[in-house]
Simulated assay, not measured.
Amino acid sequence: MKKIAIELTNVSRKFISPTGVSTLALHDFSMTLHEGDFCAIVGPTGCGKSTALGMITGLSPPSSGTVRVFNQPVTKIDPNIGFVFQADAVFPWKNVIDNISIGPIYRGTNKREAKDKAAEWVRRVGLSGFEYHYPHQLSGGMRKRVALAQTFINEPKILLMDEPFSALDVQTRALMQDELLGLWSENKASVVFVTHDIEEAIALADRVIVLTKGPGKIKSSYEINLPRPRDVSTARYSTEFINLSKQIWSDLKDEVHI
């Protein structure tokens, strides 16, 4: 039986503005992820999706409720957690291989070993020949490959992703989704993937959680039983995929209606 990797129990999160106004971003939210699970969270802007990720990292403690990672209360940043942001989190003054090797170096690996390991990850994310290019010399999709390699090289047991592909064009986005699934299938980290895109959520995840408009709470949850390994470009044309998309949109449309 798989162990529980992430457990949020009845968590709420309030933010206080500089003028003293209290805003409830997330309310009575509970979620459990086991080792190797891939869960996507969808919902309207301001529903607390990113707030949930912040509570898992320890950067944004809950106002109430409990957060546990591998059965331990979250009290600080956990080195077992990797985070991929929407914006490129690469160092513009470092080339590809230096960007990828920086994580292991900070964690105590000697530079030679870290560079050797980074070279292998350059190959695995399809950037061979670009080892000494700088971020400004790369396309958006290539920079995102660097960001994925930066994260996976540290062998995270939990991977948090906050709309990581939203800035990419449609074709590059589909390629990066397939790239992510390929890397995840090898490492089997527990993934929480935040997105506004219903089709992206269904294509990637084993479970899709739909949040209400803010303050966010769970409106519905869907198990995604599409077979794996999953090809993103073809999965979305299946009858099951289309039906799931319609059901999730039906849940979500009232939350985003203006």
Rank of each mutant, 00 (worst) to 15 (best):
E240A: 10
E223L: 09
V208L: 01
K253L: 03
E35Y: 06
K3I: 07
A189N: 05
Q150V: 05
A201I: 01
T151Q: 06
S63R: 06
Y132L: 14
T19W: 04
K219Y: 06
A189I: 06
A40I: 01
Q177R: 11
L53W: 00
Y106C: 10
E223P: 00
M31C: 14
I100E: 10
I6S: 09
W249F: 13
V67S: 08
I218S: 03
D206T: 01
L252A: 03
S60W: 01
S50P: 05
V194T: 08
V210D: 03
F241I: 03
V21C: 12
A25M: 07
D88R: 03
L127Q: 11
I81Y: 03
V146G: 08
P215V: 07
G103K: 02
D37N: 14
K188G: 07
F193L: 13
P227T: 13
F83Y: 15
L168M: 05
I158E: 08
L226Y: 01
M161D: 07
D206P: 00
L8A: 15
D231C: 13
A25L: 07
V122L: 11
S250L: 10
L160G: 04
A147Q: 05
K217E: 14
E35T: 13
S233Y: 12
N187D: 05
G126H: 10
M55N: 11
R124N: 10
T23V: 15
F91E: 10
I198E: 04
F91P: 08
K219D: 11
E199Y: 03
K94R: 15
R228P: 06
K111M: 05
T172W: 09
E35W: 05
A205S: 15
H34Y: 12
A118Q: 06
T172F: 07
S30L: 10
V208G: 00
N80Y: 09
L175V: 12
H34M: 05
I100T: 12
G216V: 09
R107V: 00
T172C: 10
E255T: 08
I105F: 01
R107A: 15
I100R: 09
P104G: 03
E255A: 07
L252P: 00
K144N: 11
S22A: 12
E155W: 04
